[in-house]
Design a protein around this nucleic acid. Structure first.
Lengths: 128, 128
DNA sequence: GACTTACTTCTACGCCATGTAGAAGTTGCT
DNA sequence: AGCAACTTCTACATGGCGTAGAAGTAAGTC
């Protein structure tokens, strides 16, 4: 169960970007202002959502194990369970894992990686 | 647009497994017999589907660009556009691509790869 | 302690992907 | 022309996701 919806992803991006736990209201405001800089749609202004909408999404993300909430504080505070890098890497493993021919997949994968990234990978793997 | 449904995946698995293009009827029969060996559910016997069901799925897979059909022959023959390894590798790139911190992701990714696979990767990358 | 206010949970609805398949249309053979 | 095989159209159920109002709960105020 990997994929996220558009809004779910937007929320996760905010949680991943900010280092602190955030409240639903904060997130709502951020969503309203944010201009989604990383997607191609420059100038795409975030929508004005109801707080309950954000809360619903957060609940679903919690159910999926992507988000944790502190129930102690009065406005509950939400934070991502793992970093975006961790999560993405996990996703990649998920995708890879469903293949019986892992080696072949890896071959294709690194075959279409940029030179820079290949270099990075070499460093990360240690020169043996 | 990456994810496949369960039946869609089953069909793709058959198309990827067989080297020849297959007809909807063939696939229907294979789906009925197959015991889905790769998923954990041992003994899970495939379902008896209507041919139209298989055709619908094939059409959708065609629309997604995963499947090609020969319209010339009378029972159309279907085949996967790319190999499973290619497709999976592409998926991995898709997942990776949506991240602004690709290097970090790669670090986490190879951090949780088996020793064997790390070895494979080293070989594939060449020691530069 | 009742009231108000902020916050959370419940319930709900529309949309779209997917599984599933019958009905209707098409093509080729006899 | 008529039948049989095959394809396309249409359709319905289910479930995830975006979206949010209604209802419930807690916390501070008078």
């Amino acid at each position: 169960m990997a994929s996220l919806g558009e809004l779910e992803r937007a929320v996760m991006d905010l949680l991943w970007a900010g280092q602190e736990a955030a409240t639903a209201n904060t997130l709502r405001d951020l969503l309203a202002q944010s201009t989604h800089p990383q997607d191609g749609t420059a100038g795409h202004v975030g929508k004005d959502l109801a707080v309950t909408t954000v809360l619903t999404v957060l609940s679903r993300l919690e159910r999926k194990g992507l988000v944790e909430r502190e129930r102690g504080t009065r406005p509950h505070r939400y934070q991502a369970v793992s970093s975006r890098a961790d999560h993405t890497a996990e996703l990649m493993h998920e995708v890879l894992g469903s293949a019986p021919d892992r080696e072949a997949v890896l071959a294709r994968f690194i075959g279409s990686v940029t030179d820079n990234e290949a270099e990075t990978l070499r460093k990360l793997l240690g020169r043996n």
